[in-house]
Design a protein around this nucleic acid. Structure first.
Lengths: 166, 166
DNA sequence: ATTTTATGTCAGTCTTGTTGACTTTCCAAG
DNA sequence: CTTGGAAAGTCAACAAGACTGACATAAAAT
């Protein structure tokens, strides 16, 4: 890891001014990060909450409502409103569990998958451009810092999700 | 660092899977990023909007309402509600401009500056920990990618703000 | 004198979050 | 087999914080 080799620089990086710049960069970058999907969602009368639900259902097909709840970090009442519109609109399918029939397993329908692709492609295009502009080494650093910034529990969830993928 | 160093890898980094992981990292990291200030704000009956206003007023003392509006990317009605509570509560001072008396120049009061320090210190503590854990090289990469992810106009604002500081 | 700009304010809407109360379903332990 | 409790869904009420649109005021610019 880099911290081992370049010990002397660490102190310079940790001035309050450097940290404040990082905070601002995070704020502005997040705005860019959500800007493109937001435009698509607005067309369709959806919001960011719909995007997040669709994203994670696509990511973990068949996950339960409870699991989605804990990934998103919202209450079931809040999620339910969003989920209901997605189900009514035919983008998400809620299947009763086979072993435990109290559980509802969530899947995207073909139309839901289409929306997911559209949203994701917009977001990935920006990410791809940023990655290209910054270079592979910067990308590795970017991911490192982001992972270190997460809450402990969230990081565990993230790593599990990350490693479960291809 | 494990993945960096060799130029030929660039293509590998730009698989959809890598991009999706970056998207998720961004989502979860932003949650961590706002978690600590959110707790402090909740105690005081404020929200994220108050934090953002206080942050940028501290950053650019004497900036006008219009300038703050454009930095925050919200409408004046939305900002006004937040700003009014901060002024009434004695955290922000609104001074009539000297050259142009239509303008209101915004400053933090001593109490406002105290809150700013408290919020900022919480956020910087997390940032500092993340920076330490990831190392200086990762930090540089982090900032690179974030800057490349911003909208053009926003990036210009950010760079102006960044370079105006010590 | 008129227009434009900067700001503030009122009213109403929307999304997305919250709590609390209650029901239905159904697994599992007594 | 009965009952306790977990999972899920629903209804209601509420709040923050975003939006639009309309309008008011003061001051600068033309």
């Amino acid at each position: 890891m880099s911290e081992a080799g370049t010990g002397g620089e660490s102190l310079l990086f940790l001035t309050d001014e450097q940290l404040r710049k990082g905070i601002e960069a995070m704020f502005f970058a997040y705005r860019g990060f959500t800007a493109d999907p937001d435009r698509i969602l607005a067309e369709l009368g959806y919001g960011r909450a719909h995007h997040r639900a669709v994203h994670f259902i696509n990511r973990r097909p068949g996950l339960t409502v409870n699991a989605l709840l804990s990934v998103l970090g919202v209450t079931k009442q809040s999620l339910n409103r969003v989920l209901r519109t997605l189900i009514v609109d035919g983008l998400v399918e809620s299947r009763v569990g086979t072993q435990d029939r109290r559980e509802r397993h969530l899947h995207l329908t073909e139309r839901g998958a289409e929306l997911e692709r559209r949203l994701s492609e917009a977001q990935r295009a920006r990410m791809r451009a940023a990655y290209r502009a910054a270079g592979p080494q910067a990308v590795a650093g970017f991911r490192h810092v982001l992972e270190a910034m997460m809450d402990e529990e969230i990081r565990a969830q993230y790593l599990a999700l990350r490693d479960a993928q291809t």
